[in-house]
Design a protein around this nucleic acid. Structure first.
Length: 86
DNA sequence: CATTTGACGCCAA
DNA sequence: TTTGGCGCCAAAT
């Protein structure tokens, strides 16, 4: 795979999150191969405004929403609609 | 190459 | 419990 960039890996990981499932930034970073890059993960998603990526399934380790390109409020709503456990 | 920016995480007070 | 501060990392400037 030409997925060389860390950000590319993160996007793939997030895109592979099944419906009704929520991962924390730490978990995503861990899957992406950089268990301590949770900082970069948030930054990448923020810059990468992509509707294909269910970035709303990525939450903080506290189980809180965090942020979202179109408002964290919308993110929490989506999670609830999908049936994500909080 | 150096500095700044963040959708974060954890600890101390 | 809440706030403030430090540490961490990749990408952008």
């Amino acid at each position: 795979m030409a997925t060389s960039s860390f950000q590319q890996r993160v996007l793939v990981v997030v895109r592979n999150i099944p419906k009704g499932k929520t991962l924390t930034y730490t978990q995503v970073a861990h899957r992406a191969g950089r268990p301590r890059a949770y900082r970069a993960v948030g930054n990448i998603l923020n810059k990468n405004y992509n509707p294909q990526i269910p970035c709303h399934r990525v939450v903080r380790s506290d189980g809180k929403i965090g942020g979202y390109n179109r408002g964290a409020r919308r993110k929490g709503l989506l999670l609830k609609k999908e049936g994500a456990v909080v």
